[in-house]
Amino acid sequence: MPFQPGCRRLMLQIDILLSALANGLMTGAVYALIALGLTLVYGVLHVINFAHGATLTAAMFAVWAAHDGLGIDPYVAILILTPLFFALGYALQRFVIGPASHGSDSNILLVTLGLSIVIENALLAAFRSDTRSIDVPYGFSVIELGNLFLPLPKVIAFFASFLVAALLWGLMAHTDIGKAIRAVSREKTGAALSGIPVEHVYAVTFGLGAACLAVAACLLMPTFLVNPRVGNAFVLVAFTIVVLGGMGSVPGALIGGLIIGVVESLSGLYFGESLGQIGIFLIFILVLLVRPAGLFGARA
């Protein structure tokens, strides 16, 4: 048959496309988790936490140190690092960001920028600019799905991210602190008048954002590398997702994360690594200029 080679090539191309798509979705889920922390803080405090990327880098180094120094598996580290980073985020907002910014939005922007510079360069001073990774026995395991070979750590990351998002949603919907957070995000003064400790709620929100990052770092480390600057790449992706999904919108962050993961994977496939990065920035700029409220946010 004269068509057969072409037909097989087409099949192969579809396989490559499908595997890029699956990879994009799996990475996108972790992006969504990172963006979730950012959008949560935005939804409540109505400010951007510029230290988000640096906090993620710190969490990734913590996973690396736990594995390299103490031999703790990254998935076990979730149980230790999540409460630790919750406490860290809580303390940063309660004792540094809150008091230093005197309640002004632009001050929060500047203070978190200052924090990101401090954290990033403290990591640089401590670990130098070397790139590090961890070796886990399941690092290269794959799951076969038809013609697709899906890396096991990425499949775990995909489902774990959605599990965390569901847990977070449950926390917001069904617990007292969740109700308090939603009350503060709607009407700060009213919440304060009904006896909700606003500063505490702000700090809890920051803590939850940092806890999301700790989980994301544990899910990322089996397949990603870490160096002191790695957070920058992730945070711009996270900003893009948050802007795309609508600032403060949790479903927006999830869907935005998946979209960006797929876009990055496909543009990496067709345009190469460096220009794939540009695709994300261009989407970011376009969304900001054309529809700053995002796909799911209310029109500002």
Partner: peptide, 22 residues
């Protein structure tokens, strides 16, 4: 030389300036 040490100082100064010297 410790890389990034001057930038750590810059970051701290930024926070201190916003907090105490608007």
């Amino acid at each position: 030389a410790v890389p990034g040490i001057d930038l750590i100082v810059f970051g701290i100064l930024l926070i201190l300036a916003v907090a105490f010297a608007p």
